[in-house]
Design a protein around this nucleic acid. Structure first.
Length: 570
DNA sequence: AACTCGATTCAA
DNA sequence: GATATTGAATCGAGTT
């Protein structure tokens, strides 16, 4: 029998007590909502103990937000097997095209879309009810009460049908919630970060550490050269405006100061300027201040925002985890006695497109390890670079330039694959929605967007409307691929987590997931289990493909390497 | 002092 | 080569 354990802040029916009001309540129910145990009142910091006890019955844990609750359980040493995250599920159901109609969904879709609201960490903190026993207390906020959580949980379950589409949506919801567990566990584990290595590379690039607010020595030296070469003694090279003015005055005709445009210019200042930009970025983004702020006890712990991107990719908060530059990856270093297993999916998105479109020719090109070479051999005279530019252009919506020119050729070779992304683009331009393979949908076009499309009364407005339509088309075109790739990655990690836990259940600590970035994972693994884990990583990739698509002729190879530090991967 | 916005560069 | 998707973060420079 399926069991569900709901964790809430309180129960509406819970009588306020003079002293020692409960800090949480746990309710164990079956799929129909019937209580299997009397509600468990939790006092003080007793939640981890209560949860650990109930976990032996292996329920699916229902939280308003795993992100809010799970870290404190992990801190107390309690791990959970399965979860259902009401907030993440709510966000999926809001835009999901294949659902069972209900009042719950109707209400949900009438609320203002949180996707258009400020992220939670930028909003003022919600008011916490702290009013037990007070004479003039404000009414208690019952949104987190167990009765309401249970009602929403049951409503979410009945929103999912049991046909093929419903099963896919159920898989998405389960995978998203598993992702929430994994995200919290990765934050808890942390990326092993060697502060000494990091500081050494900073010293080599910037010179000895100086107080905050002072320009590092090697930056100051380059700044001096730049000022001299541009005859601008007071120039602050950190200001793009000042820099642009100074360069124009020195006779350099440019309209912006982006590094890749500067490379085209022949002038003595370019070399020191590019060198300056390079180390200035290092100093401000991943310099001494970054290490002080984000690395603690040898661990970098970014927060993962599961489903934080419209396409279902993860966002992150704190320390810029989505953009760890190659420059500092030598500081990501396994503890003694351990190694890093770094794995990524090879050319995931075009393979996803092959599976989505059932394009047998593209599937054939993807048969080998190098998909782009496969495409090149099939229709681009063996030219891999051209094949890659064409394929990326098809998935992103390039119209002009080389990529645009190569599109007709690509369409002749892969009519189904190119046809699918073109269909998705047309849907978006027309104001319709598209969805991922498992059923995550695009948010509806805004009212302002629809108004602009409807009455473009001037030449100017018509141009703007067309540009907006094309932009939405590129979004929906990319959405079907990126969102399904995110689902594949979620399943990959879920399968891997299951295998790691199976090992742990038999008493073998195989190591843990410590980092995830779209199509790449990192594990921190005891030396002796490295090859076992590499095997599990490959096995999980195949299991993920099968879980999503069933038996299809598309390969999803991953590369997995065993290294001491992150820079040795790739 | 706290905010917003544009410019820039990093990642997949 | 010159063009397309999704993000995070910092800085300067202007605003409230």
């Amino acid at each position: 029998m399926q069991q569900f354990a709901i964790v809430a802040t309180h129960a509406i029916s819970q009588p306020d007590q003079e002293a020692g009001a409960a800090t949480a309540v746990v309710l164990l129910i079956d799929a129909s909502g019937a209580e299997l145990l009397p509600p468990v009142q939790v006092y003080g910091d007793g939640l981890p103990r209560v949860v650990a006890e109930l976990e032996t019955r292996s329920p699916r844990w229902v939280f308003d937000s795993v992100h809010e609750w799970y870290p404190r359980l992990l801190a107390a040493g309690v791990q959970l097997n399965r979860a259902h995250d009401l907030t993440l599920t709510r966000n999926i159901l809001r835009n999901a095209p294949y659902t069972m109609p209900s009042d719950y969904l109707a209400k949900l879709r009438n609320e203002p879309d949180p996707a258009n609201m400020a992220p939670a960490h930028l909003l003022p903190p919600a008011r916490v009810p702290e009013n037990q026993g007070e004479l003039f207390s404000e009414p208690k906020d019952d949104s987190g009460a167990v009765e309401n959580l249970m009602a929403e949980f049951l409503a979410q379950r009945s929103a999912v049908g049991d046909d093929e589409r419903g099963k896919r949506l159920a898989l998405l919801i389960a995978a998203e919630s598993a992702g929430a567990l994994i995200g919290a566990e990765m934050t808890h584990a942390g990326v092993p970060w060697d502060v000494a290595t990091h500081q050494q590379l900073l010293e080599e690039a910037l010179g000895p550490r100086v107080p905050a607010g002072v320009r590092p020595p090697l930056m100051e030296e380059l700044a001096g050269q730049i000022r001299e070469l541009l005859r601008a003694p007071a120039l602050n090279p950190d200001s793009p405006q000042e820099l642009l003015r100074a360069m124009n005055q020195a006779g350099i005709a440019i309209s912006n100061t982006r590094a890749w445009e500067l490379t085209e210019i022949k002038h003595p200042v370019i070399e020191p300027l590019l060198a300056y930009k390079k180390i200035a970025r290092l100093a401000s983004a991943n310099g001494y201040a970054w290490v002080d702020r984000w690395v603690n006890h040898g661990r970098f712990r970014p927060e993962y925002i599961v489903g934080g991107v419209v396409t279902g990719r993860w966002a992150s908060h704190g320390g810029g985890a989505l953009q760890i530059p190659h420059q500092v990856r030598s500081a990501v270093r396994a503890d003694p006695g351990k190694v890093l297993v770094v794995a990524d999916a090879a050319q995931l998105e075009p393979r996803i497109l092959a599976a989505l479109s059932r394009d047998t020719a593209l599937a054939a090109a993807a048969r080998g390890k190098d998909l782009y070479q496969g495409i090149a051999d099939a229709g681009f005279g063996g030219d891999r670079a051209h094949a890659k530019v064409a394929m990326l252009g098809a998935m992103y919506g390039a119209t002009s330039g080389e990529s645009g020119r190569l599109m007709p050729k690509l369409k002749i070779t892969y009519p189904r694959a190119v046809g699918l992304v073109e269909w998705a683009a047309q849907q978006g331009e027309a104001g319709s929605d598209v969805s991922s393979f498992l059923g995550r949908g695009t948010p509806a076009a805004s009212e302002a967007w629809k108004r602009a499309q409807k009455r473009a009364d001037s030449e100017e407005a018509a141009r703007a409307a067309l540009s907006e339509a094309r932009s939405r088309g590129r979004f929906t075109r990319n959405f079907i691929v990126q969102s399904t790739a995110a689902e594949w990655a979620l399943c990959w990690m879920g399968e891997l987590r299951r295998r790691l836990r199976a090992g742990a259940a038999e008493g073998t600590d195989l190591g843990q997931l410590v980092f995830f970035l779209h199509d790449e994972i990192m594990l921190h693994v005891p030396n002796e289990h490295a090859e076992t884990v590499v095997g599990l990583v490959h096995e999980s990739a195949q299991a993920a493909a099968h879980l999503l698509f069933g038996q299809i002729p598309v390969d999803f190879p991953v590369t997995a390497v065993v290294v001491d530090s992150y820079d040795q991967a790739k």
